[in-house]
Design a protein around this nucleic acid. Structure first.
Length: 217
DNA sequence: ATCCCGAGGG
DNA sequence: CCCTCTGGAT
């Protein structure tokens, strides 16, 4: 029988071909701009974020610049993203902290990142993984749901799921997998009515009707 | 209508 | 632990 590791390898491979450009969407910038982009991405899509970042980074390319911004001006730029008021405030406060405590540089340690206004576990994890090469596998609702359906973890605590996944998935695959699981969760492995018929992971999944044991599980 | 690629606050 | 903040996508 296939081990969890072997199953994970198969799943990663299928996801790679299904979502070829998963990680690169946010990775082509410096640490500060990446951090800002990830903060902005809450409750939205990369496409929406990518619409505003050119203007945003032209006006505020660095922490120093953004630290002096009027939050009201930032709000106008991120108007079309959800939570825009909160984000604008967080971005300015975050930048001020960056300047005040880290010389305007983005720290590469989890505790320091998470101490920043607006930066929590998920944001810190992505920055750590994409920019600093300390790959984690942040578990949000999508990742949680997909992983559970795939049967790669049964843990109820997301932190526990993350722990188990990191044991199974090699560091160099984690961030890509993170992003691809999210893409997959949003487009195919939907929460309410998953489109198992369109799912390329159906063969490897414990969830779809075709693979279900029915009784005697 | 529903849900959400989160984090802060009570 | 539960609520709130938000618009956009589905």
């Amino acid at each position: 029988m296939a081990s969890d590791q072997e199953r994970a390898v198969r799943i990663v491979a299928v996801l790679e071909s299904a979502y070829p450009r998963a990680v690169t969407a946010l990775s082509h910038r410096g640490a500060f701009q990446l951090l800002v982009a990830v903060v902005l991405s809450a409750r939205t899509t990369d496409a929406q974020v990518n619409k505003v970042t050119p203007d945003l980074f032209r006006l505020y390319p660095t922490a120093q610049a953004m630290a002096q911004a009027d939050p009201a001006d930032l709000e106008k730029l991120v108007r079309h993203l959800g939570l825009f008021r909160v984000k604008a405030r967080h971005l300015v406060e975050m930048s001020r902290e960056l300047v005040r405590r880290y010389g305007g540089e983005v720290p590469g340690e989890r505790a320091a990142l998470e101490s920043l206004p607006g930066v929590g576990h998920k944001t810190a994890g992505v920055v750590l993984g994409v920019f600093f090469g300390k790959p984690t596998l942040p578990v949000d609702t999508h990742v949680f749901r997909v992983i559970h359906r795939l049967g790669l973890s049964r843990a109820a605590d997301p932190a526990r799921v993350e722990e188990e996944l990191c044991r199974i998935v090699p560091p160099e695959s984690r961030m890509a997998l993170h992003h691809r699981l999210i893409d997959h969760g949003r487009t195919v492995c939907l929460g309410r009515s998953p489109r198992c018929g369109d799912c390329r992971l159906a063969r490897l999944c414990a969830y779809p009707a075709g693979n279900r044991e029915g009784s005697g599980g």
